[in-house]
């Protein structure tokens, strides 16, 4: 190991954070991520216009290029307007909110489900383990888009259905890592000690084994959020994801697609750029997390 030895008495999370911040790209990624999250959370406060309030938008303002002033003169459309005269900057903030909610929400739900199933598989072994892991193999071997098409063809479009689909696709990644990690932890002394104390199973798994499995799971979570956002955008672009009343970035891009051929690039371009920044930011942070948390990457 080339890095400085861990100072005794300092909490590992603090050490990890310090090491994390040593990489400039990761700091940029983190800053970008913070900016986007703030924009999404405070969309209502920041956006100059509520893009879904029909009284606020004016069809006369449709498809104005970036930087134009509205007909009434009270708003400047810095990123232009879409086909219905919506301020794109506002629509992007609201869309980002939907995209991030779906991405983070599905990653969180999939994480809980996957980690639980992974721990159960590692704990019980035998047929339960085999069943869970074969299911993991099946889901990981099928192309994600195929599973998504099946689910959404059956369920129809809607935010809830997209989240359900993403959870179905993602839990397997957590389950596999949680199981592998838990199998390693089972051989440790503290595990034997906890069993010797006669602690109940759930307590051993959740209080003793799980915290030790967390670092690699965090890395997976970061990458799965990026994957979920991409897949959601793709599905919404295809018209299978977010409903028209709650457009995510993918749907905004799809709405602008028809205008792109006539040279009105901004309607698709800026939502796409936002999506890109979000994915790149998460990946930068995720990659650095892996470097910091995964002992194998230290070499």
């Amino acid at each position: 190991m080339t890095s400085a030895p861990v100072a005794s008495g300092r909490r590992p999370a603090v050490t990890a954070l310090r090491r994390f911040l040593r990489a400039p790209t990761a700091v940029i990624g983190l800053a970008l991520m913070a900016l986007l999250i703030l924009g999404a959370v405070f969309a209502r406060e920041i956006a100059p216009q509520n893009p879904f309030d029909l009284a606020a938008i004016d069809v006369l303002d449709a498809r104005l290029p970036p930087g134009s002033a509205s007909m009434s003169g009270d708003i400047t459309y810095w990123l232009g307007t879409d086909g219905q005269g919506r301020d794109l900057f506002s629509a992007i903030l609201y869309g980002l909110r939907t995209s991030l909610t779906v991405g983070v929400g599905s990653a969180l739900l999939a994480g809980i489900l996957g980690i639980l199933l992974g721990l159960i598989a590692a704990w019980s072994g035998g047929i339960v383990d085999a069943l869970i892991m074969r299911l993991v193999d099946l889901i990981m071997s099928l192309p994600s888009i195929l599973v998504a098409l099946l689910m959404l063809a059956l369920l129809g479009r809607g935010i809830g259905n997209v989240v359900l689909t993403l959870v179905l696709l993602e839990w397997a990644y957590y389950a596999r890592t949680a199981r592998a990690q838990a199998l390693v932890e089972r051989k440790r002394d503290y595990f034997e000690a906890a069993r010797g104390l006669g602690l109940p199973t759930y307590r051993i798994l959740l209080r003793h084994v799980l915290p030790n499995c967390l670092p690699p799971l965090l890395v997976i979570a970061a990458l799965q959020v990026a994957r979920a956002i991409t897949l959601e955008a793709t599905l919404s672009f295809l018209g299978l994801g977010a409903p028209v009343t709650q457009p995510s970035l993918g749907l905004l891009i799809a709405n602008g697609f028809q205008f792109m051929l006539s040279g009105e690039y901004w309607i698709s371009f800026f939502p796409g750029l936002t999506l890109l920044l979000a994915i790149v930011a998460i990946n930068l942070v995720g990659d650095r997390l892996r470097e910091v948390l995964d002992p194998r990457a230290l070499r």
Partner: peptide, 14 residues
């Protein structure tokens, strides 16, 4: 790896 395919497709068309 990380760019969404459909977005790159749009850029290609553009």
């Amino acid at each position: 790896f990380s760019l969404p395919t459909f977005w790159v497709g749009l850029l290609l068309i553009m």
